[in-house]
Structure formats: C-alpha cells, structure tokens
C-alpha cells in the first residue's frame, strides 16, 4: 500500500458517493435503481481492489463475491424494472377507464 493516490480507489469512492447522492435525491424509481447500481459498482470496485492487493495472483475469493454480487444486483434490478412497468401499465389503465 502506497500513499500515492490510486486512481481506481478514488473511482470506487466516487461511485459510492455519487450512488448515495442519487439514491437520496432521485425521485423517479428507475433513476433510483440506476443510482443504487452505481453505488453497487463502487462496492464491486472496492472488492476487486482488495483482490488486486494480494501479492502474486489475484485473490479469487473477492472475485467470486463480485460475480455473485453482479448476478444478484442484476436479477433484483430486472425485478425492479418489471415492477416499474407494472406500475405504468396500471396507471394507464386507470386513465383509460377512469377511476376504478
């Protein structure tokens, strides 16, 4: 570990900070999902850095954690997108048929 700035460590911190900011300030559910995913990418970047810091070959354990994390984040996001579509479909139906 050096005190030299590590560009990717700074990038990870930036992703976490920006993702948090977006999670708080964004109102649109889809935008909020994007912000959460950006935050998650910062976390994944952190894990990859931890793996990279192992002397010799990269540490496979954080890599496995990131792979698991990506699949979980993507499937949860896909489910979230289905929720968003359902909400819009219902809102449209209400407009078409008046109040129900």
């Amino acid at each position: 570990m050096s005190i030299m700035p590590e560009p990717f460590a700074l990038a990870a911190a930036a992703l976490i900070a920006v993702g948090f900011y977006g999670f708080i300030t964004q109102q649109h559910p889809l935008r909020r999902l994007l912000a959460i995913n950006i935050f998650g990418n910062g976390v994944f970047m952190t894990l990859i850095l931890v793996a990279y810091w192992l002397p010799g070959d990269a540490d496979p354990v954080p890599h496995a954690m990131v792979l698991t994390g990506i699949v979980i984040a993507v499937s949860a996001t896909a489910f979230g997108l289905a929720l968003i579509r359902r909400r819009i479909l219902d809102a449209n139906r209400k407009q078409d048929h008046g109040d129900d």
């Binding site: 999902l33 959460i36 935050f39 894990l47 931890v50 954690m65 984040a73 949860a76 979230g80 929720l83």
Partner: peptide
C-alpha cells in the same frame, strides 16, 4: 402493492450493498 414493493426493493437493495461494502472491507 406495486408501489410498496418497489419502495421495499429500493431500500432492501441499497441496504444490502452497504452491508456488502462492510464485508469487502472486513475481508481486506
């Protein structure tokens, strides 16, 4: 329930990623 579920999902997903950051640092 769709609005409630969406809100629930946002918080659940964000919370677990915060937790995961802790896991990564712990492992480091």
């Amino acid at each position: 329930t769709v609005a409630a579920a969406l809100n629930y999902l946002h918080f659940a997903l964000f919370g677990s990623l915060v937790y995961l950051a802790g896991v990564g640092l712990t492992y480091a």
